[in-house]
């Protein structure tokens, strides 16, 4: 393992901002893994640390394939995580909406340009990501459909689901979108939650990434991992959206991954003044909870569940 500083910038009042890369193996640029770009992606930070640990052991045991190299950037934004801010603290911009970046541009454009320069040219790319709506997902691999997406490779992770989403204009500045356009087979991995560590989901996600590395022959000598799933492919436009018919206290009864039948109660919305149940949120179909709101309060018409119908 070699540690290098990919980007460094002085700060007027803090220590320097540094992005560090951990390189394993030698040879072709085969796999790059990008860690958190937002300061609340604690689960993603933890997963990256575990991947660095596992790859360090793999390298010590000679398990990295000859002629292949791996780069892991465990944090793309340590500054924001250190001050508990989701975005770049000075101007609240999102590094993950600045790609491919611009080395002569604004601060977060420069950071994105440096990250993209380090990540560009790899055959495979994995980003540990979070969603723009607060909530929990069933762990899955997500791909933006640019025409360059590779479903067969996405299945190598052996996660329960692979989801496909059509890019909207604001998605064209995401790392994943640009990675694909620049010929990397790019995947976003959603590891259940964001701002807290869910060790079960983290362990499944680390195993899934290691499994992909074994299946793609980036690692040799298979080691025992948790069992793989035959992934179901989900078109996100076909997910059933369940919205809150009332505002109030959100009491969730079903979590991501739960199998449900039409009419099952997914949550209750409680009147914050008198404790009465204002509404029982019921499933519109048989299926699996794919996404669930995770805040204690909910707005009227707020998106609270996404269901993958059977």
């Amino acid at each position: 393992m070699r540690v290098e500083t990919i980007f460094e910038m002085t700060s007027p009042y803090r220590d320097s901002f540094r992005i560090k890369g951990f390189r394993f193996g030698n040879g072709e640029k085969t796999l790059a893994i990008a860690g958190p770009m937002r300061g609340d992606e604690i689960q993603q930070q933890y997963i990256c640390s575990q991947i660095v640990r596992r790859l360090t052991m793999a390298e010590q045991h000679g398990r990295i394939s000859e002629g292949k190299s791996i780069l892991v950037i465990p944090s793309c934004n340590p500054f924001s995580m250190n001050v508990s801010r989701r975005f770049w603290a000075m101007d609240n911009t999102d590094i993950n909406r600045m790609f491919p970046g611009y080395s002569q541009g604004e601060t977060t454009q420069r950071i994105a340009a440096a990250i993209f320069s380090a990540l560009e040219g790899f055959e495979y790319g994995i980003q540990l990501a979070s969603y723009y709506v607060p909530g929990d997902f069933v762990p899955h691999v997500r791909m933006i459909t640019t025409g360059y997406e590779t479903l067969d490779t996405a299945k190598l992770f052996g996660m329960k689901f692979v989801s496909l989403c059509k890019p909207r204009p604001f998605d064209t500045a995401l790392l994943n979108y640009n990675w694909q356009i620049w010929n990397t087979k790019a995947f976003s991995v959603y590891a259940g939650c964001t701002s807290r560590i869910d060790s079960t989901a983290a362990s499944e996600t680390v195993d899934a990434i290691m499994r992909m590395m074994q299946a793609a022959k980036i690692l040799t000598k298979t080691v025992t991992l948790s069992p793989a799933y035959e992934p179901a492919v989900v078109d996100e436009s076909e997910l059933l959206h369940v919205k809150a018919s009332h505002a109030g206290i959100f009491y969730r009864l079903k979590s991501p991954g739960s199998s449900i039948e039409s009419g099952d109660v997914l949550a209750q919305i409680i009147d914050p003044y008198n404790g009465q149940c204002l509404s029982e949120v019921k499933s519109p179909a048989d299926g699996i909870v794919f996404f669930a709101h995770n805040q204690p309060l909910v707005f009227e018409n707020g998106l609270i569940f996404m269901i993958r119908g059977m």
Binding site: A247, I249, V298
Partner: peptide, 10 residues
Amino acid sequence: STELPIDEKF
């Protein structure tokens, strides 16, 4: 016009 959680309309 939608409800906010605690006794307020957005």
